[in-house]
């Protein structure tokens, strides 16, 4: 029975608004739970994360290996020089990751090595056609070009 003095329209409007707020909360809460759980699951499997460089992210094996390689290479190269990432496939995203990890250098993609006057090649998996080998580790070589 409707309590005395109640406005049915107001009652309906109020309940609708309350319901809208609850729906929004459940909606966002479900999204948060979904994404949080998915990210946690992926993070636990990060060592086995395998993807093209377009999907690289921090903490995966590929970027960690690149970080280690470029860290060693930086000890051999004078700050500020131009460095080319040797890569016959001209992988754009690998180049961008290398540039991020070597901010003190002008990091260029292989095809721009000449134009940039690159003094060094850093190679992860291929031997460049020229250059003097300065350092080699599994999956990481540094060559002096000039």
């Amino acid at each position: 029975m409707e309590p005395q003095g109640k406005d049915p329209a107001g009652l309906l409007g109020g309940r609708l608004r309350q319901a809208a707020a609850i729906v929004l909360l459940l909606w966002a809460g479900a999204a948060f739970a979904w994404e949080g759980w998915a990210a946690l699951t992926d993070w636990r499997r990060r060592g086995r994360f395998a993807a093209t460089s377009f999907y690289w992210r921090f903490e995966v094996a590929e970027t960690m290996a690149l970080e280690r390689c470029l860290g060693r290479a930086a000890q051999l190269m004078p700050v500020g020089c131009a460095v080319a990432v040797y890569d016959p496939t001209q992988d754009f995203f690998r180049w961008r990751w290398a540039a991020y990890l070597l901010p003190a250098y002008d990091v260029v993609i292989s095809r721009d090595a000449e134009r940039a006057g690159a003094s060094f090649y850093v190679s992860l998996d291929q031997q460049p056609p020229r250059g003097q080998l300065l350092m080699t580790r599994p999956g990481c070589q540094v060559y002096r070009l000039r």
């Binding site: 966002a28 948060f32 994404e35 949080g36 990210a39």
Partner: peptide, 12 residues
């Protein structure tokens, strides 16, 4: 809702 939704997007 706003914080949860934005954090979900931020994470995902």
């Amino acid at each position: 809702s706003t914080a949860l939704g934005c954090a979900a997007f931020g994470i995902g």
